[in-house]
Amino acid sequence: MQQLDAGSVQVLTSLKSSTAQTIGEPKIVARDVSVYYGEKQALFDVDVNVPRNSVMAFIGPSGCGKSTFLRCINRMNDTIPIARVEGKIAIDGQDIDDPELDVVELRARVGMVFQKPNPFPKSIYENVAYGPRIHGLARNKADLDRIVETSLQRAGLLKEVKDRLQEPGTGLSGGQQQRLCIARAIATSPDIILMDEPCSALDPIATARVEELIDELRQTLTIIIVTHSMQQAARVSQRTAFFHLGVLVEEDETSTIFTNPSDQRTQDYITGRFG
């Protein structure tokens, strides 16, 4: 087991203390965010505020830039050599491009769940324990056990797996694997979770479980979900943003977007009229 790294604990603690913001302030503020892949511009001057303890859905046709923007929020685009991000994104008022900010810590704070469940080829226990361990969040084995248990519990998976924590995570069903990935994401106590089509590979029951989980998690977390299902966006989110051709066309309360959107392009997309 990796030794506790006093330095990283300190950084993390300072990050955590900066989260004590007033409730009314947005959790995430993005201004003039543009993304280029080589010469090609994929995202154009996106401005958006994401309120804390809420779910925001990103919708739009394939290639509209919604996932590209999602990946800016935990600087995942840094890992793509030809990608270039312009503009500012701040979480709790802190610029995520601040040179003093450790990107590894940023990603512990901003968890991510992907379209295809991608558990590590390790045990269920190890899948969840990995993050807290490398970030030095557990003082000892008992502490780590507690984090694993709580995370599985919050992900609604504990009951189903508590007697087989040492079995491989890849042996679970698709829906269980996705909840394991969510447990893994919440194990590092993030305050934001980014979900990129988390239910597109799941059956309706597994989808319902994940949606129920999203609703519970938003009591303490801020969640952004990219989805191709209008119904899912309507069910789980409080606000919805519609992207088209790399532009954030419209962002509003979810109930407004789905009953009376302001922009014709939004209306055409959500009603299935896109040309």
Binding site: M230, Q231, A234, F258, T259, N260, P261, T266, I270, T271
Partner: peptide, 8 residues
């Protein structure tokens, strides 16, 4: 599952 103008 109609939306927006169709729903209205």
């Amino acid at each position: 599952q109609p939306m927006a103008i169709d729903l209205r």
